[in-house]
Design a protein around this nucleic acid. Structure first.
Length: 135
DNA sequence: GCCAACGTTGGC
DNA sequence: GCCAACGTTGGC
C-alpha cells in the first residue's frame, strides 16, 4: 500500500469532474519519472488530488482502481495510464501555502519537484495532511 | 506576464 | 557524451 500525489489543472480535469465521473482515467502523462510512478501504482493505493495553477491545493483523495496499461491518448512511445475513483473529499482543502508552512512537509516531492505530475508521498505526510484537513 | 526549474533536443 | 538552446510546467 503506497501513497501518491497526483496533479491536475482543474480547468483540464478537476476533483469535481472525477466525483461526477466516478472513475477517471489518468492519462496524458509524458514524463518518464511520472510514468515510472504510474507503473508502480497498485490497486487500492491512495492518491492526494492536487489542483495546480488554479487553486494550488489538495482537495481530495482518490483510489487506484485499475493498474497501469498503455495510454490510449499516446500516439507513440511507451506511455501508460491508470484509473482512479474518488475516495473522499477533504473537509478543508490543504493549500500549497499550508504545506510550505509545515516543517514536517518540507520534504514533499510536490515542493522539491514542483513539475512532477505524479509523485510518491510518505505515510507520515499523507496522515499529516489528512489530519490538517480535519482542523 | 515573468521567471525558475527541469526535461528534451541536437550540434559538435 | 557534453552542453547550449529551447520548450513546458507551475508558482508568484
Amino acid at each position: 500500500m503506497q501513497y501518491w500525489l497526483i496533479k491536475s489543472e482543474p480547468e483540464a480535469y478537476s476533483w469535481d469532474n472525477l466525483a461526477k465521473d466516478l472513475i477517471g482515467r489518468w492519462d496524458g502523462v509524458r514524463n518518464y519519472a511520472a510514468r515510472n510512478n504510474l507503473k508502480a501504482m497498485q490497486i487500492g493505493d491512495l492518491c492526494l488530488f492536487y489542483h495546480s495553477v488554479t487553486g494550488k491545493e489538495i482537495v481530495g483523495v482518490a483510489k487506484v482502481v485499475k493498474e497501469h496499461y498503455p495510454d490510449p491518448t499516446a500516439e507513440e512511445g511507451d506511455w501508460v495510464c491508470v484509473e482512479v475513483a474518488p475516495e473522499m473529499k477533504l473537509k478543508k482543502p490543504i493549500s500549497l501555502a499550508q504545506i510550505k508552512a509545515e516543517p514536517r512537509l518540507a520534504e514533499m516531492k510536490l515542493l522539491k519537484l514542483s513539475r512532477l505530475s505524479v509523485s510518491p508521498v510518505t505515510r507520515e505526510e499523507y496522515d499529516l495532511i489528512l489530519a490538517l484537513s480535519e482542523d
